[in-house]
Design a protein around this nucleic acid. Structure first.
Ligand SMILES: [Mn+2]
Ligand SMILES: [Mn+2]
Ligand SMILES: [Zn+2]
Ligand SMILES: [Zn+2]
Lengths: 143, 143
DNA sequence: GATAATAATGCAAATCATTTGCAAAAAGAA
DNA sequence: TTCTTTTTGCAAATGATTTGCATTATTATC
């Protein structure tokens, strides 16, 4: 058994690039590691700053370009919550939706089989087939 | 009984402005009529073009400024569907969500009591109270 | 209706997030 | 290593929306 430690999904992301015949550059490696390692939803600037700590030569353009290819390959999800810039997260696990705490800005993930099913039903009734959807709840802590 | 014809809710929008001590200008009147009259979800540029037909002196800035005050007063809803610019619609009737036809771009409105309720439940379970939400389905016609 | 105080407008310039052209650098195949 | 192709950093361009400012219009008041 080899010494394989949990890399948080970096391999999946790298595979997504390799599979598309794209190259694994030093800067991409750094960005992928950050994406796979974090458990939040950073925007391009946040990714850039974190990446720059490991590789000061990295540019914001590269972050944007990398997000684009990863999204095209379906390796990451792009979210655009009210107001703010686009935010990203690896698209590994199962699908989930988000609840945004209006006071703290915190993003909470949730998943409801029932809602997912209802959405399908609604679309079907309207004669449609869902390709994707976006469900975001904005609220505040209940006291 | 006076000769009151259906103005499609222009009065509501005007009231929203008046009520906030804001002024009813010629350009605002035009914009409000277009908003209240249409049954679609135009973006600022579309509103501007339609308004310009009635009043060529109107500016895009004014459209944006008017949308902002109307939104602040809760008189209109602002939507930002995937990709595109912000789109608007009067916030008269009951709340509804949207299904966007990926092929035609058509925006279909729907309303599901059950989904609305489920969202509340989910938020409650997470210890939150929903202030607003956004549910958008993107799909294609089922053949 | 004229008047004065204040809000709204048009225009151009500014902002913000994101994209793009291009020459230089790096990656991968041979 | 060499060659071909992709990727990068940088600066400039975009697209949507906002803003400063001088001018104009609206509304409360007389
Ligand atoms: Mn998430
Ligand atoms: Mn609608
Ligand atoms: Zn979902
Ligand atoms: Zn809803």
């Amino acid at each position: 058994m080899t010494d394989r430690r949990d890399n948080g999904g970096t391999d999946d992301l790298e595979a997504a690039l390799r599979g598309a015949g794209l190259r694994i550059t030093r800067q991409r490696r750094v960005i992928l590691a950050i994406l796979a390692g974090g458990d939040d939803h950073p925007d391009a600037l946040a990714l850039f700053r974190r990446a720059a700590r490991q590789d000061p030569s990295i540019s914001l353009s590269t972050v944007y370009r990398t997000m684009k290819v990863l999204e095209e390959r379906g390796a990451i999800q792009r979210h655009t919550f009210e107001g703010g810039p686009a935010r990203f997260e690896p698209a590994d696990g199962v699908h989930h939706d988000h609840l945004i705490d209006l006071d703290s800005g915190e993003v909470i993930e949730f998943r409801s089989e029932r809602i997912e099913k209802l959405q399908d039903e609604i679309a079907r009734e309207l004669g449609y087939e869902i390709v994707s959807h976006r469900l975001e709840l904005y609220g505040r802590r209940r006291k």
